[in-house]
Design a protein around this nucleic acid. Sequence first.
DNA 1: CGATTTACTAGAACAGCATTCTAGTTTCGA
DNA 2: TCGAAACTAGAATGCTGTTCTAGTAAATCG
Lengths: 209, 209
Amino acid sequence: MRKIRQSRAEPRAATLARRASVLEAALECFTRSGIDATTIGDIQKAARCSVGSLYHHFGSKEGIAEELFIEGISRFNHGMVRRLKRCSSAEESVKAVVRFYCDWTTRNRALASYLHSRDIDFSEEARARLKTVYQRYIAEVFAWFAPFVAGGEMRALPADAYVPLISGPIQEYVRRWLSGHYERPPGAMKELFAQAAWNAVRAEGRSEE
Amino acid sequence: MRKIRQSRAEPRAATLARRASVLEAALECFTRSGIDATTIGDIQKAARCSVGSLYHHFGSKEGIAEELFIEGISRFNHGMVRRLKRCSSAEESVKAVVRFYCDWTTRNRALASYLHSRDIDFSEEARARLKTVYQRYIAEVFAWFAPFVAGGEMRALPADAYVPLISGPIQEYVRRWLSGHYERPPGAMKELFAQAAWNAVRAEGRSEE
DNA sequence: CGATTTACTAGAACAGCATTCTAGTTTCGA
DNA sequence: TCGAAACTAGAATGCTGTTCTAGTAAATCG
């Protein structure tokens, strides 16, 4: 068993359980009444713990919100990478990104809604953590796609263009769906956007077979 | 001069000026310290007015945030429609959407950042107003594009697919740029995304000339 | 096993801020 | 010039995030 830091032991099982239950309770409250409107008391009641406990684990209300956000993003990222690694072609991979986005969002609607609701207004520290998480994720994804670009199956583009081109449309659709502007669930658009994503980044020249 | 409601007079010039100055001050504060961290006192000081005045005009802190949001969206929408109406072809129109998004965002960075930061966590009433604003806007834009679809220059797609396909990528890029994940300003991607948007919705068959 | 330290919980007390309230002042129509 | 409505002001209030003190359970070590 490796120790974290010098003399710091691993967190106990009970600790992890409590943290998880708080995050779950917080998501529930945020979803029901919005972030600003939920009070520490609300979360406390929903998680069945004391104020002291909340502050011991998270430091502040914002701390809870940040943790929930970062954990949500991480979960999404891991799922995406796992899904990608089951693909065998460029086309399948690109389409898998769109499909996974669609599926995950539909399956984790409350969390997805929370993740869409804000990505600003966090502390410097949280921003930095988020950036790290994102960069590690992007590095993994790019490592996956790099061979397809090198092999001429996908267009060579500025690095920052791929994510928006592939997942921009489905993300925008989901955002509006979550906000109640669109009626039909993302699943209805899945294949349309998957094909569009592939068209946007496939190598040119070879027209549709 | 038409009257609003029964006996309600038009708002005075001074009122409009004060409201505008408050919104301006609020945006400044929100940009500097984040929405949660700015206090009513901060806005009050920045706008040089009393607490009573703030509450008279906006009802609450959230009221200020909502008003700023809705007004920002409206300004963007008007600008977009105006720009669209100067276009003469389908291709020019589609590309104009992307370019305008890019230009407006760069020109109004603080406001754009605010508009991207949240679209949830508003009161029911504000949500309803937003929905109305959005639907009116969409109706105008669709009226503009409908002839191109009918004329076979653009693909016939589910109505809800056009916005994500055309502006999803640039929007996603801008979002990440505003969050500090991307270095290069949106202008650097303008033509790339404009062309991609056109490719995504142009009628098929006629390959690139 | 007992002692000592550390992780964790509890809830009362505190402090700060959003909001309300009362008392005005200014503007405008008649 | 008068009356009413729009608007401003800032003190008072009450809620809520946060801190603090005092504990209890769990782990570590002799």
